[in-house]
Computed example of a mutant assay.
Amino acid sequence: MKSVRGRNPEKESMLKRKLKAEPLLILVGILLLCNVIWFIAWLIPNKMEQDGEKVASVGKVAITRGQWMTAMEKEVGREVLLDLVNENVMEAAAKKYKINVKDKEIDLELALIRSVDGLSYTDVDEEKVRKMIRSDLILEKVLTKDVVIKDKAIKSNYDENKSLYNLPTSYRTAIIVLPSKDEAEQALGELSGGSSFDVLAKERSVDVGSANLSGDIGYINDTTQSIDQAIVKTAAETKAGKVSGVIELEDGTFAIIRVSDIVKGRSFKFKEVSEHIRRELALEQLPESINPEAFWKEFDAKWFYGK
């Protein structure tokens, strides 16, 4: 028996609409492809134009963006890439060895570093500093995970060095040092008028070391021995974000102080620092210093500069 399918007007209507839409979709696809090709064609010469763009000149000799970028890569490119590779290697190590680094551990390390060396990390932003400390902690934890340190040794070390964990309030300080009171007062007037502290420190401060850092002398506190005590005292009396008046220093010069940050002092109890001490004692037992590059092969790390 021959079967005959009945007509379905609704399906026929849908098929007609589909057939009419297909050429339109093809046309849209072609236009989209043309736009992509045009964008790529535009991007390539634009990149070339950027490389050839003049960013400076000396007389009639132009310095192009391409020259500038190449010089920067040679100057700092290797170190920046090395940091990025090491950071990722340490993160891979943390995952493999189930290493956990808590924020409070980073806080402790940062506080201890600043109490010993006020200039540490002062030229690096906070987020970057914390990443660097995190990588260091991962490395230390991996290296010392199998080293056994007795609780008695940890407690003894804490008792002998308890003062190291009683941290005084510290002040992030910058200075402008000038040879006379008149010059210092003139500079103070300019600061009041809106002049940049950083610029004045670089241009006029006779303290060469801090002038090169826009006046920055890092975090200082009551225990800082290398700084004129008049500076320490004035910093303690200055609010964060404020500039002091003119003060006289021991050597007869005059200074203006700026405090940009204040870290409140605190005392760390044994429980808070016991793991830090254990790790420090364990590191002392290692035969040699080891850096993240020692783990590159284990985690198949490769980079632009070779093996």
Rank of each mutant, 00 (worst) to 15 (best):
R172I: 03
V116P: 00
G241V: 03
E87H: 05
F270H: 11
Y97Q: 11
L112V: 11
P287E: 04
G209T: 12
A211K: 05
D107H: 13
Y305K: 02
R266D: 05
M72E: 09
A94M: 08
E126S: 01
L108Y: 03
L164N: 14
I37V: 13
D123V: 12
Q67N: 00
D146S: 11
S57T: 00
K297P: 00
N46I: 04
T169Y: 04
G252H: 05
H276L: 13
V246T: 15
P287C: 08
L178I: 08
V129G: 04
D123H: 08
V208H: 08
A41M: 04
W303H: 09
A201W: 05
W303L: 03
G66S: 01
M48E: 11
A235E: 08
K297G: 08
L33T: 15
P292Q: 03
R78E: 13
S180F: 09
V80K: 07
Y219C: 04
G52F: 04
E105S: 06
K54G: 07
D103L: 06
T223P: 04
A71D: 01
L213S: 10
Q186F: 07
A235V: 11
A93P: 02
L200S: 06
S192C: 00
K297T: 07
V142Y: 09
S13G: 07
W303Y: 13
I154W: 07
E272C: 09
T144K: 05
A111W: 12
A62T: 07
M90K: 06
V28R: 07
T144G: 06
S214D: 01
F304G: 00
K54V: 14
E127Q: 04
M69N: 02
L164W: 14
T64H: 05
E284Q: 15
E10Q: 07
E237T: 13
I26D: 07
L167Q: 06
A301L: 04
K74Y: 11
K302Q: 06
G241I: 02
T64E: 11
D136L: 06
Y165M: 14
K16D: 02
A282G: 14
